[in-house]
Amino acid sequence: MIFITGGVRSGKSTFAEQMAAQRAKELGGRLHYLATGAPSDEEMSKRIMRHQQKRSESEFMWRTWEQPRHIERLASSFSKKDVVLLDCVTTLLNNELFFLNQEWEEEFLREVFERLLDGIGVLQANCAELVLVSNEVLNEPLGTNELVLKYSFMLGNLHQELVKRADRAYLVESGIPILVKGGRG
């Protein structure tokens, strides 16, 4: 598993796509793109279209799946040689947290946390390489709002666990990937 994060417009998605394509070439498997976001406005739609366009123009064949929740249900669609790119973990967390209009009590949050990690685990077990993209949002004042703090706690801990599980973890700064964990092997 490869974990990639970066700030807004850091080039993390582009890097992740290159990385996934390269791994697919090495592994001889197919490329899957797992989109977790539903377009919420026009700008978002354009953004999604731009990424789709880029993938369709690339020399690799991408198969796109839209799955905002329960990603593990896609597991049977992949073969053990395939590479799956999931963009992005943050949206996946948002989808889980906001899908039901539920109070963010400790038990609910823990359940969401476990479910996301289990889902990712199932995908990982059913493909050759899972590439995860996420956002860097924890380096600013978080304020005192309880919801913001709970959300940040969830995301930070999720990232910590994913980095622990990943063979390689990258932080992308202005298009430059910094390898923080693991080496090419």
Partner: peptide
């Protein structure tokens, strides 16, 4: 002295 920094909830 040892200074340890990083984002919130990063495991410091």
């Amino acid at each position: 002295m040892h200074f340890v920094t990083g984002g919130a909830f990063n495991g410091k």
